[in-house]
């Protein structure tokens, strides 16, 4: 399957292991990813908070470039970018005059014919056939699948069908050999863009997520969004200070878990880049396998 890719800024910097692991598993899953040429930042919550037209124009330039490159479909792994690109596309399709105005602002033609898609949908299709034969080392751990905000909301055009209890990531984890647990914080917000400007709020919100996952016996939290990862992993010491407890539970990208199950090298998946070490004291539930980082 050939598909366009919009990595977004986080995946080139503080969340580069998300891109690395996606690119590591892509060839094994038969995915051919072509990056949008000369893409720009989508503006994220900053443009969205301050200047509505700017919040449309920046993603619109990305859509126009993808269109120009002949891409029918664009994979946007970051949930925040996904939200900006898909809501912009929906708004410009609905409002013809606005679409023309924005096309003039970005100096590019824009029909919005390139469709935008999320990582869970792409991975579901790519693993639909013959995935079990490719598994080298089932990821036999209890995992809490954390969807956050933008994979389920806004409901119109959302990646996941069940808004309050989505199942798409859970299904992927089962394919990888994991045991996804039912829990209460699947779609609660981690604090997202306030990570730097109001860290205390993020410690509180992300702390609730980590605490519930730990209480229910999860051995790892699985995410598909760089901001969720930052707030649950990089902000772990803030969370621990706030709650007065330590949590050893690592946070992995969905692409990293699939990569481990496929037997891909840990470094290629960027596991060494996490704040919370990806290792476990206890053996995996699975009888015949060991989690890769267990014995060091």
């Amino acid at each position: 399957m050939k598909i366009g890719l919009y990595p977004g800024c986080s995946l080139e910097g503080s969340s580069r292991e998300y891109l690395e692991s996606l690119q590591a598993i892509a060839p094994v899953l038969g995915l051919e990813l072509a990056e949008v040429p000369d893409w720009n930042c989508c503006g994220a919550s900053a443009a969205h908070s301050l200047n509505h037209k700017l919040a449309l124009a920046l993603p619109a330039r990305v859509l126009a470039l993808a269109e120009q490159a002949g891409m029918d479909k664009l994979l946007v792994p970051c949930s925040a970018c996904l939200n900006r690109l898909s809501t912009t596309r929906a708004e410009l399709i609905k409002n013809e005059a606005l679409r023309r105005e924005i096309a003039e602002v970005i100096e590019l033609s824009l029909t919005c014919r390139t469709r935008v898609t999320d990582v869970l949908s792409v991975l579901a299709k790519a693993t639909a056939n013959g995935f079990s034969e490719k598994i080298r080392q089932p990821f036999a751990r209890r995992v809490a699948c954390y969807y956050g905000c933008y994979l389920t909301r806004p409901v119109e055009g959302a990646a996941c069908r069940r808004t309050e209890d989505p199942q798409e990531m859970d299904a992927l984890m089962k394919l990888a050999g994991a045991d996804p647990i039912p829990w209460a914080f699947k779609v609660e917000c981690c604090g997202a863009g306030l990570s730097l400007s109001r860290t205390s709020s993020v410690a509180e919100l992300a702390g609730r997520v980590v605490e519930d996952a730990a209480l229910r016996g999860a051995e790892a939290i699985v995410v598909a969004c760089p901001m969720c990862h930052t707030n649950l992993d990089l902000r772990r010491s803030n969370i621990e200070q706030n709650l007065g407890t330590r949590f050893a539970m690592p946070v992995l990208y969905v692409t990293q878990v699939l990569g481990l199950a496929l037997g891909i090298d840990e470094r290629a998946l960027g596991l060494h880049r996490h704040e919370v070490p990806v290792r476990w004291e206890k053996k995996a539930n699975h009888q015949d396998t060991q989690a890769p980082s267990e014995v060091k």
Partner: peptide
């Protein structure tokens, strides 16, 4: 104020470079 400063620092970076430069964002913030 801090929240606005973050958004402004973010957009400053995108205006200058086309993409977000995280180091510059934090320094500017």
């Amino acid at each position: 104020r801090d929240i606005l400063a973050f958004h402004e620092a973010f957009l400053d970076s995108v205006r200058k470079h086309g993409r977000l430069q995280e180091v510059g964002l934090v320094a500017n913030y």
